[in-house]
């Protein structure tokens, strides 16, 4: 679980991480990280899911850069990528086209994220 860029709103990422923890998952909380740090963490920790939490309005730019770097390293398809935060519904399709598996806006129930992860995790 990572917060790309400079955006002090931790709460969302923390709440979702806690929910996933309570669902029996191991969550590596990366906190504020730049694109390189996010990709490095995901690779070193060999995670199943990359969660990007953004409330700054920069979700399109950051997601694209994370995905491009994952592609560059040849590992994009190793991970399930989820994006959440204050994200306008009209941007959901763009994010999915980039390769994000699902997007979670305000009002999301954590149980839905858990369910999606369990059903879509790459084996």
């Amino acid at each position: 679980m990572s917060k790309p860029g400079i955006d002090g709103h931790w709460r969302g990422g923390v709440v979702v991480s806690r929910g996933l923890r309570d669902a029996g998952m191991e969550v590596i909380f990366g906190g504020f990280q730049n694109v390189e740090q996010i990709v490095e963490s995901a690779i070193s920790e060999d995670v199943d899911v990359i969660g990007l939490s953004m409330h700054s309005g920069a979700h399109l730019a950051y997601t694209e850069r994370v995905i491009n770097l994952l592609k560059e390293k040849g590992v994009k398809d190793h991970f399930l990528i989820l994006v959440g935060g204050v994200i306008p519904v009209m941007d959901f399709p763009t994010l999915k086209e980039m390769g994000v598996a699902n997007v979670y806006g305000p009002g999301t129930v954590v149980a839905d994220i858990t369910k999606f992860i369990v059903e879509n995790i790459k084996k």
């Binding site: 029996g24 998952m25 191991e26 590596i28 909380f29 990366g30 906190g31």
Partner: peptide, 14 residues
């Protein structure tokens, strides 16, 4: 209780 974990050490090692 759940087998889950919140791993937060990396935050200090950015």
């Amino acid at each position: 209780f759940t087998g889950g974990a919140f791993l937060g050490d990396r935050v200090r090692m950015t």
